[in-house]
Design a binder for these strands. Structure first.
Lengths: 200, 200
DNA sequence: ATGGGTTATTGGTCTGACCAGACAAGTAAT
DNA sequence: ATTACTTGTCTGGTCAGACCAATAACCCAT
């Protein structure tokens, strides 16, 4: 039926995906050489390269001439840099990304509240010094604490992605009270208040 | 100093960026052919292809054999989709995807409640016939109504993606009462109840 | 053991070839 | 004149081979 014929480089990506999965490869591990992989899959080396270049641009792999191709820790920064350099201001998506980011943050806060309420609030307090500036970087650190303490890699990755996007397009604006309220809530209040905090 | 020598396909991407900018190309417009572009830039066609394949994977362009390469409307989540197919290889994420899906659905419900409460509940009622089965397909239709009525493409795309994933890995199980409760809430209650419904 | 040169391997790049899909112009049949 | 077919020429899709550049592995002389 309506099966769009898959391109060679796309099938290479699928195979690569399986390969990584089967061999349980970790970041830093070496992938097969381009020539070897091409022969294994029965495709041309150029097709393998197209696939590798694509995910290299995504920051998923790193290639070193003379050495090989290596799995990399996901660096969403590079992705965002590439994307935002192509996408000139799409106004509505910027806003929508912000919505989604706040949504994810809120849910993460609730998880943190349930799971590691005490631990998080302690680490938060350490973030505040005399000269704390409440900019995007501070926001990042603040929620970094949250995501590091909850067990939810997917939520964390999504958040990172959304943060990077915001970083390059918009500024994150919460006032000082927002963070102070959160700390107070974690110390004294109940979880329902978090919802209220985000309703405004 | 620290100029890491740029790869050919990366310089192609830069040039392409400028090209799009200079010519003020819009989504749907045609890019130069691979051969022509290669000659213009003084690089091989394979390098041009590596660049194009990379941003094709990002969903920035669309190629049609025999016709050419065309600029595409930016699909912000196509990136996430690609990344996810690589990142979501760990087993424990099936559950996490479910979490995220419920999160998105809940937020969408709240939006729908605020924006098009009446319209949604009317359309919901039409979904229930005598022989309604409460399976994944029904769940899809039920929330399809929600997402079609709220103005949030990003949330909608993310939900679609998560639904696709759930479809292939897990089944979505809510009992009949869940949907009936929602309809009742939209008719008679206040928005806070939605939160309660998801807490159980 | 150590240093240095040689060799093999890997990615980086280009070229040329051929296939397949799309399309327009030209041509033959009606 | 209209229609249907053929052909040429665009386009991307793919492959094989060649060569360069950088690194790693090896071997040998010291």
């Amino acid at each position: 039926m309506s099966l769009a014929k898959q391109k060679a480089y796309e099938s290479v990506l699928d195979k690569l995906k399986h390969f990584i999965n089967d061999k349980q490869l970790q970041p830093g591990d070496k992938l097969p050489s381009e020539r070897e992989f091409a022969e294994q899959l029965g495709v041309g080396r150029s097709s393998v390269r197209e696939a590798l270049r694509a995910i290299e641009l995504l920051g998923l792999i790193e290639t070193r001439q003379g050495e090989g191709t290596f799995l990399r820790e996901y660096q969403s920064l590079s992705t965002v840099r590439v994307l935002s350099s192509f996408i000139l201001q799409e106004q509505h998506t910027v806003e929508e990304v912000g919505d989604l980011r706040r949504l994810v943050e809120k849910e993460a806060l609730k998880l943190a509240f349930k799971q590691t309420r005490q631990l998080v609030s302690e680490q938060w307090l350490q973030l505040f010094t005399e000269e704390t500036t409440f900019d995007t970087d501070h926001h990042y650190l603040f929620f970094q604490v949250v995501f590091k303490n909850i067990e939810h890699p997917l939520l964390q990755k999504l958040w990172h992605f959304l943060m990077d996007f915001s970083h390059h397009t918009d500024f994150i604006q919460y006032n000082k009270e927002f963070y102070q309220d959160l700390i107070y809530i974690f110390k004294h209040n109940t979880i329902e208040i978090i919802e209220d905090l985000y309703e405004k």
